[in-house]
Write a protein that binds this DNA or RNA. Structure first.
Lengths: 195, 195
DNA sequence: CACGCTATTGCACTGAGTGCAACAGACTGC
DNA sequence: GCAGTCTGTTGCACTCAGTGCAATAGCGTG
């Protein structure tokens, strides 16, 4: 029991987590985030309010847990890219993973609309993406030419790429999903590369 | 009374606001954001908790009200720049206004440290800066060459510039204020301009 | 069957945020 | 000086997010 702290528990736990998140997001999307109490979410999931807090630290977590996973996915994909690949090319390839996520366009649109429709969720979203920087920057740094400020440069590139992704996302929502998100991303990146 | 809805009231109100914000930030910085209740802030300012809510919509607002003003300052400065000036040049010039704000380096460092030391404040910070985009992007768009995606491009540039500012800020805190913030900004911008 | 581990749950409490109604002070017209 | 209005302040009661604690229920193991 020392080596294996019961991975089965971990497994069921993460299944329950994503199930709860799904239930919650559905409720949020239909009733509105602010008009939905955790009491209701718990009831809909058939558990107690207190137990909900065993799975998620806050109401925001419940809505945004998916984002943390996305960050991990992107980082993992980025780490797999060839070491000599250009930073922007590698990032672009890593972002491709977002298109492969098991989620219908409708669900994705619903989710992002939810995100942008509430102040504290938008804030949490922005913060979560800011954390992606910490995951991506170390993977970008070795791809840059030697320089005194390489660490800063890596952070800037990671942050800027994520920002472009965010801008593309916003535009994608504005267009009601009637466009390819990564195309929009490419346009955004083009815009900042050269004056 | 129709034309002038007593601008005097507006004036005193904004004075009281900044006074309250100052008091609150001092408390937050010494006791910690989470360990400070609005009850205490109100007491320190000599008003009631309820009245505090007449001036600020939330605890976060109390800590971050300065940021909204900064955004307005930057936008105002940007609007003053010559219309034919390059977007990045104009932005860089507009950001200069941040150095002119009446705030000792110690106070600024204290404030930013406060910002980065708390999850929800970091989130609020990120969100406030995201709102700057909405102010700056329309001022940038006319500076870009005609294109199908000019609006998207303008948003991307505004967002990227703000992101670089944020990265520079983080680095500036990491260096304990021992550097010129705009120099760091320039380095960050350089890094993303060229593939 | 009994034991121990862990997740679940209820309960009570703090603190943010809101709606409402009472109140105090300033300013106006008489 | 006095009555009336307008507005900012305050207290009160309430909802809801989030936390600590202690009791309990469920489950695998001896």
């Amino acid at each position: 029991m020392a080596q294996k702290p019961t991975p089965l528990r971990e497994q069921t736990r993460s299944v329950v987590r994503s199930l709860l998140a799904r239930t919650a997001i559905d409720l949020f999307a239909t009733k509105g985030y602010d008009n939905t109490t955790l009491e209701e979410v718990a009831a809909a999931a058939g558990i107690s309010r207190r137990t909900l807090f065993n799975y998620f630290g806050s109401k925001e977590d419940l809505a945004l847990s998916g984002l943390a996973e996305q960050g991990d996915l992107i980082a993992a994909r980025l780490a797999e890219r060839p070491a000599d690949e250009d930073a922007w090319t590698a990032l672009r390839a890593a972002f491709q993973v977002l298109e492969e996520i098991d989620m219908t366009p409708e669900a994705r649109l619903e989710f992002i609309t939810l995100l942008f429709g509430n102040d504290s969720l938008r804030a949490g979203h922005a913060e979560k993406q800011a954390r992606w920087q910490n995951l991506l920057a170390p993977l970008i740094e070795p791809r840059l030419p030697d320089s005194e400020h390489r660490t800063l440069q890596a952070r800037a590139i990671a942050a800027a790429a994520i920002t472009c992704l965010q801008v593309a996302n916003e535009e994608w929502v504005r267009l009601d999903g009637q466009a390819d998100m990564l195309d929009l991303y490419d346009t955004a990146v083009q815009a900042i590369h050269r004056p």
